[in-house]
Design a binder for these strands. Structure first.
Lengths: 333, 333
DNA sequence: CTGAAAGCGCTTACAG
DNA sequence: CTGAAAGCGCTTACAG
């Protein structure tokens, strides 16, 4: 797709409009600084030449890239997609673009992606996976970049965190199930830090209130439907059968439900199921799924709001922004 | 997050290594041009300073941004996610980043996103939605940017297309259903260009083979579960009931299935269902869904392969790269 | 294999 | 409200 027609530059627009390059630059970056009549001539010149600013040059000169990096584990069937979607949409309103980085389930590509973002002089880096490596944390702190950790509320954020307390989620689920009279929960947990925090919240609350230590199974890999199905079968072999299965994701929960239906087990009478995430399916499948809803889009919007406040020179008073969560009781528990 | 420590630059690394800036630049961009001993000293200097190249400056000087724009309608529960995921992963291997642009279901934001990509001097733009606007097509053609249209095979691609024939998909489904003895198909179609092409392929094949013109319903909006459920109920009211419902997405199909199960309708004996997309659910739900599988990840990889060939200066002999599709017969039809 | 120097296309204090 | 000019941090022919 190369073409001999050359790409128009700022000074060509300036020549055509009979102004200096500086004025055209202001027209784009600070429109109110230029007189209406001048602006109109520039507008015409832009139109006539088909000029599109070179933001590589602009970013270099101004040291504002208008690039935000969004780093997530994956986007396949991810609970983070709503957050990314909201961010991208909000940021494009501001004339920012977003670099999508996929860190992988084990966050293996996180360091390279952070380097890539810093190399492009990203204005901000928004992560959903955890950044554990102290060297990386220091690197980010040492740069003039806003860092937003999302979907969790770490004690000591690199910069700002937007999320909710996973521990509190676990506690709420425990209270809810106790209130409904369940006695023998079985936990199905994926071994991610967040899921483990929810698990711990559940276990602590449950045992503190006098409940017996729940039976449980954990999964190393990313949890999908199939894990839930396999888990259901394994659970049927346990010496004491649980009366409710608490899953670390809706995917696991749906897998359990499908298998339970197929086995003719009545839900929730014989066996109840709780998920996490409130994916699209949760309200649509039969039985409908009791789960925890996170407003992922709001996390994205709050993150962008932080960037806007920074850009406006405002201080961020609280480095922890809690968006909360909502336990939604449906048919399955 | 600002800090007084200044960000190290290329010439500081050069000073420290006792070489010129040019040599350090070559170390990063063309390592084989620098002597082993020199390289080692540079490596140490980079390490000591924590230098991260400024690719805004680098891109400006070299006019290669190492930025690829991926423009998709949405990522919520999109069939395109596998393509985006594969692209991002492949490109990060090459040191490219990807700008994720969400055009919206009606592609309303397409023009702005293309401008944003051109403004960053993207090396390539990969689109999954359609670019219909001739002015936009011309703009892209006039720039030194590779344009890859994916998920379809337009007659006259802007540059290169990677996809499959939607028409052929529709034809294959028609043949398949005829072979199984179905007589009265009902079509459930979302009004997107691609879905409409599949629909047309189906109708043409079906009627040419002597079948009666199928009954049908179309949906303006993005199709979700709920549409399928509502459609099922509407279909039950039809004077002649169809024996198979052909859906333009797995989401629609699953909605139909859930409602059919709830209504006690036997699938596929009383009513068969066919989807499109082979989403994760298709093989997991009961009954399992007969649908069409598209290797979305392969589309992403083929697109990146085109970029690599371009970068290597090779010609792309065929502007249409067909990845095909696969009809997967399961329980539902 | 390496260096000096021009140039990439903008932005922005400074001055008016 | 506008302009002249320096500077942003790299890359790359050119010369050696």
């Amino acid at each position: 797709m190369s073409d001999d027609r050359k790409i128009p530059r700022l000074d060509e627009v300036a020549d055509r409009a009979g102004v200096s390059a500086a004025t055209v630059s202001r027209f784009f970056n600070n429109p109110k600084m230029v007189a209406a009549a001048t602006a109109e001539r520039i507008r015409e010149a832009v139109e006539a030449t088909g000029y599109v600013p070179n933001l590589l040059a602009g970013g270099l000169a101004s040291s504002r890239s208008r690039l935000v990096a969004a780093l997530v584990p994956d986007i396949a069937q991810s609970i983070f997609n709503a957050t990314v979607e909201a961010m991208v949409n909000e940021l494009s309103v501001d004339g920012h673009i977003v670099m999508l980085g996929l860190t992988g389930i084990d966050n293996a590509r996180m360091p390279d992606l952070i380097s890539a973002a810093l190399a492009r002089r990203a204005d901000a880096i928004i992560v959903t996976g955890l950044v554990n490596d102290p060297a990386l944390r220091d690197l980010m702190r040492s740069r003039n970049v806003t860092v937003i950790e999302t979907w969790g509320l770490p004690d000591d954020p690199i910069d700002v965190a937007v999320g909710f307390s996973h521990r509190a989620v676990g506690q709420d689920i425990a209270r809810f199930l106790r209130g409904r009279g369940y006695r023998r929960p079985h936990l199905l947990t994926a071994t991610g830090t967040r899921a483990m925090e929810r698990r711990q919240g559940f276990v602590d609350d449950w045992t503190t209130a006098g409940g017996e230590t729940p039976t449980e199974m954990t999964f190393e890999s990313q949890t999908r439907f199939g894990h839930g199905r396999a888990a259901f079968r394994a659970i049927r072999e346990l010496p004491t059968r649980p009366d409710v299965i608490v899953c670390s994701s809706d995917w696991l929960a749906q897998g359990v439900l499908v298998e339970a239906m197929a086995a003719g087990v009545r839900v929730p009478d014989e066996l109840a199921v709780v998920g996490f995430g409130n994916l699209a399916l949760a309200a649509e499948m039969r039985p409908t799924l009791t789960t925890v809803d996170i407003d992922g889009a709001r996390i994205g919007r709050e993150a962008v709001d932080v960037l806007r406040r920074r850009a406006a020179g405002k201080e961020i008073p609280d480095r922890h922004i809690d968006v909360g969560f909502r336990l939604i009781a449906r048919e399955s528990a």
